[in-house]
């Protein structure tokens, strides 16, 4: 197309007018809401000095808490992937009585105060609870007050993120593509593996990032079920609170900074994978 665009100051006409004003507002907003608080978080630990910062972060208790927070968040997001996909599939593709109720119930973790979720989960998973009791008796498994409990709580709060990111993509994915695969000779399994899942992969990864990000910072639901034993079931956000209560602001900020950097690196890595997947798509 060689149609000439209206000549303006720039060589190309822009779709949105007022580029400068828009950019100014966006940057200002970003600065006030995100950058300035983060800068404070980055500056505060420097009071400790480089050596002090390293010492503060390499305390065994800090390392264990960070390890648990990130490990449990990753594990919870990973376990939620197949579960979330299954639920999204059920909501979009299957017709059964009670589907509407299931659909609505999926959002409950969004709405419920996380402390309530924590208490409820603890009540059923505790050794004398509905689920915890039989599990302890039959298999000798303990969930509440162990790391498994932490993962369980994180799975509960982060599940809707995966379901709700996959759902619209699945809804949008025409049944025609699956029918085309069938006419080309693909079995049901080949269709799912080669057509459906690759089509959903970007959405699954986005859901995974969101679920992970939500889980890493989760506090309310975990502290009830975890038992909070230092070195064992103490999560990093709790450690921050504990340090704050001891007026160790720089130490608290140091843990916060470590979480920020680690989260950023992980999300960046996922975003890079996303970019590769989005090749060729608008």
């Amino acid at each position: 197309m060689s149609a000439s665009l209206p000549a303006g100051r720039g060589a190309r006409a822009r779709a949105i007018p007022g580029f400068r004003a828009t950019l100014a507002v966006t940057l200002l907003w970003l600065a006030v809401i995100v950058l300035i608080p983060l800068a404070a978080l980055a500056l505060r630990p420097l009071e400790l000095g480089p050596a002090g910062l390293i010492a503060s972060l390499s305390e065994e208790r800090v390392v264990a808490a960070l390890g648990l927070s990130f490990g449990a968040a990753l594990l919870a997001a990973l376990l939620n992937l197949p579960l979330g996909l299954l639920l999204a599939w059920a909501v979009v593709r299957l017709r059964f009585p009670g589907r509407g109720i299931l659909d609505a119930a999926l959002d409950l973790p969004f709405a419920l105060p996380t402390a309530v979720a924590g208490i409820a989960l603890t009540a059923i998973a505790a050794p004398n609870g509905w689920v915890g009791g039989p599990l302890a008796e039959l298999f000798g498994w303990k969930i509440a007050f162990t790391r498994a409990g932490v993962v369980l709580a994180l799975m509960f709060v982060s599940l809707p993120f995966i379901v709700r990111t996959v759902e619209p993509v699945l809804r949008d994915m025409a049944a025609e593509a699956e029918e085309a695969a069938a006419t080309l000779g693909a079995t049901r399994a080949q269709t799912v593996l080669r057509v459906v899942l690759p089509g959903l992969l970007p959405a699954l990864l986005t859901g995974f990032s969101l679920a992970f990000a939500r889980s890493v910072g989760e506090y309310g639901s975990v502290i009830f079920i975890a038992g909070n034993l230092p070195m064992l079931t103490e999560i990093a956000p709790l450690l921050i609170v504990i340090r704050l209560e001891q007026y160790d602001y720089a130490g608290a900020a140091a843990v916060g900074l470590a979480m920020l950097v680690l989260s950023f690196l992980l999300l960046l890595a996922i975003e890079l994978v996303q970019r590769r997947l989005r090749r060729g798509r608008r």
Binding site: A174, E176, E179, T183, T187, R281
Partner: peptide, 22 residues
């Protein structure tokens, strides 16, 4: 006889190309 065993070529109304494939 299921669709995949019929060996019939089908061109769909909206083409139904696989979007994630070249």
């Amino acid at each position: 006889v299921p669709a995949r065993e019929r060996g019939i070529g089908v061109v769909f109304q909206h083409y139904a190309l696989f979007r994630h494939m070249t």
